[in-house]
Amino acid sequence: SAVVMEEGSPGEVPVLVEPPGLEDVEAALGMDRRTDAYSRSSSVSSQEEKSLHAEELVGRGIPIERVVSSEGGRPSVDLSFQPSQPLSKSSSSPELQTLQDILGDPGDKADVGRLSPEVKARSQSGTLDGESAAWSASGEDSRGQPEGPLPSSSPRSPSGLRPRGYTISDSAPSRRGKRVERDALKSRATASNAEKVPGINPSFVFLQLYHSPFFGDESNKPILLPNESQSFERSVQLLDQIPSYDTHKIAVLYVGEGQSNSELAILSNEHGSYRYTEFLTGLGRLIELKDCQPDKVYLGGLDVCGEDGQFTYCWHDDIMQAVFHIATLMPTKDVDKHRCDKKRHLGNDFVSIVYNDSGEDFKLGTIKGQFNFVHVIVTPLDYECNLVSLQCRKDMEGLVDTSVAKIVSDRNLPFVARQMALHANMASQVHHSRSNPTDIYPSKWIARLRHIKRLRQRICEEAAYSNPSLPLVHPPSHSKAPAQTPAEPTPGYEVGQRKRLISSVEDFTEFV
């Protein structure tokens, strides 16, 4: 048969007729292969192709491409040299491709048809291009793949890379869960390890502090508590009631339409708007009261037996805890006409967050109470924005700035309102402590230090009264110190430094 060459192609190359033996071998191979691939376009007849790359030819070592076609129900084999250009295909004639002069020997084609199974398996396991790669995943090629499931790999992101949580363990979102698992493993320790309690022994800490320079003076030496005195035992138990972190309780009120001037209507609300609910979820963490331990979680007086509701929101960081007394989460009882059960919590909070959804101005004093010092007013606006402002009593104007209003988005509203309420509550605590000038409020841990110092002074006084020969370590507060001759004046800087060093040991009130 003659071949018409394309323009620009090399000279004529004689194409030899395939021997009958080659056709029989390739026909047997075509019957084993699956003929249901995917359909081509209507211009080209339905056909199945599979590209198999052999590394070497037997005796020649030339890479070839073998295409199996099922045109007219008769499979045909096409061998081509890759750099050459194939002729145009037609549905009426068999596929013809040019070969190099080196394939002119018909014996070479017979060798190609009689490829060993080793070469076929190696060509099938190679990388296939384009559409033949999808075909190689079918059941027909499963014989050339190794048996057994593939090893499982770690989760992959859409980009093909490992997620960040699997790369950096410290930033993994499941870090707290692993800590819980470690605690569970520790709890399952053997009885021999049960006595080993991690941490620092208080006796060891005391020993280090006792021999430090801070205890060089007799006034700073630790003293032993009497065991037989019940009054001192009660004082030590009272110390446990003062937490070592700051605590805040903040009221949250929802004002519906037409309720801006009605205290009873505001306290009777059992739910609010959708934006109000989203605002609550951002204030803190939802907790169930019956599962809380009052000595570990500050509840601000809420009952854990269901008297004040089942849930509330709280927030904490390293040095403070805040609980929100939310009116809509507290039960509304029919027998309580004046809502006294709610007001006994909300009316005693220094700061209230008022979500004013009424469309009218909310005035300070609508919720009557002796300790309502500051109101954080949240007014929802259009386009997911809110107006946040402050209202306070006249005696609080020096501590709280009420002249600045803020426009905040719904997303950042819980954070801004919480921070403003916490700052206002700190100012309210300082303002409330002014009624007792001898006990200015600095912080909870300073209050613990003052309680310890008062307890020490009482013990020293009782020891001096029981044994008059012992001198008083600290003179009583009601006694007057003996007159001392004025010492020589020293520079102001040295006096300030000495006073600062003494105050650092005794108390921190002056620095606050």
Rank of each mutant, 00 (worst) to 15 (best):
residue 318 D to I: 05
residue 391 Q to E: 07
residue 501 L to T: 14
residue 328 T to D: 03
residue 282 G to F: 01
residue 241 Q to V: 05
residue 478 H to V: 15
residue 252 V to S: 00
residue 263 E to P: 05
residue 296 K to C: 05
residue 338 H to C: 14
residue 457 Q to W: 08
residue 436 N to Q: 07
residue 368 K to E: 15
residue 345 H to S: 07
residue 320 M to T: 15
residue 303 D to K: 14
residue 410 D to G: 01
residue 387 L to W: 04
residue 383 Y to I: 03
residue 316 H to A: 15
residue 362 F to C: 03
residue 504 S to C: 08
residue 357 D to T: 01
residue 301 G to I: 04
residue 315 W to R: 03
residue 369 G to D: 08
residue 492 G to T: 14
residue 477 S to A: 12
residue 293 Q to T: 14
residue 271 H to M: 12
residue 342 K to I: 05
residue 400 V to E: 04
residue 434 R to V: 09
residue 224 L to K: 06
residue 438 T to C: 08
residue 329 L to T: 04
residue 274 Y to R: 09
residue 461 E to F: 10
residue 238 L to I: 07
residue 486 P to S: 12
residue 374 V to E: 01
residue 367 I to Y: 05
residue 450 R to P: 15
residue 464 A to K: 10
residue 226 P to N: 15
residue 245 Y to I: 15
residue 487 A to P: 11
residue 233 E to K: 14
residue 355 Y to N: 00
residue 255 V to C: 05
residue 338 H to Y: 12
residue 344 R to E: 12
residue 275 R to H: 01
residue 390 L to V: 15
residue 402 T to G: 06
residue 473 V to S: 08
residue 225 L to W: 11
residue 439 D to M: 08
residue 384 E to N: 09
residue 223 I to C: 08
residue 480 K to T: 15
residue 385 C to R: 04
residue 383 Y to W: 06
residue 418 R to H: 03
residue 305 C to I: 06
residue 410 D to Q: 01
residue 345 H to A: 11
residue 244 S to T: 14
residue 510 E to N: 10
residue 310 Q to L: 15
residue 484 Q to W: 10
residue 440 I to A: 10
residue 362 F to Q: 01
residue 355 Y to W: 03
residue 234 R to H: 13
residue 259 Q to L: 02
residue 474 H to F: 12
residue 485 T to M: 11
residue 299 L to W: 14
residue 263 E to K: 02
residue 218 E to A: 07
residue 256 G to T: 03
residue 326 I to D: 04
residue 380 P to L: 00
residue 412 N to K: 04
residue 405 A to L: 14
residue 418 R to P: 01
residue 480 K to P: 12
residue 482 P to R: 13
residue 365 G to P: 06
residue 395 D to P: 05
residue 300 G to C: 12
residue 324 F to M: 03
residue 269 N to P: 02
residue 314 C to A: 12
residue 407 I to S: 03
residue 397 E to A: 07
residue 387 L to H: 06
residue 495 V to H: 13
residue 382 D to V: 02
residue 379 T to V: 07
residue 249 K to H: 15
residue 303 D to R: 15
residue 446 I to C: 14
residue 270 E to K: 06
residue 395 D to T: 05
residue 422 L to T: 03
residue 462 E to W: 08
residue 363 K to D: 13
residue 379 T to F: 03
residue 269 N to E: 03
residue 422 L to N: 00
residue 376 V to K: 01
residue 292 C to L: 08
residue 400 V to H: 03
residue 333 K to S: 13
residue 229 S to Q: 09
residue 251 A to F: 03
residue 325 H to F: 04
residue 317 D to L: 00
residue 435 S to M: 10
residue 442 P to E: 11
residue 328 T to N: 03
residue 329 L to Y: 04
residue 435 S to R: 12
residue 492 G to C: 13
residue 332 T to Y: 08
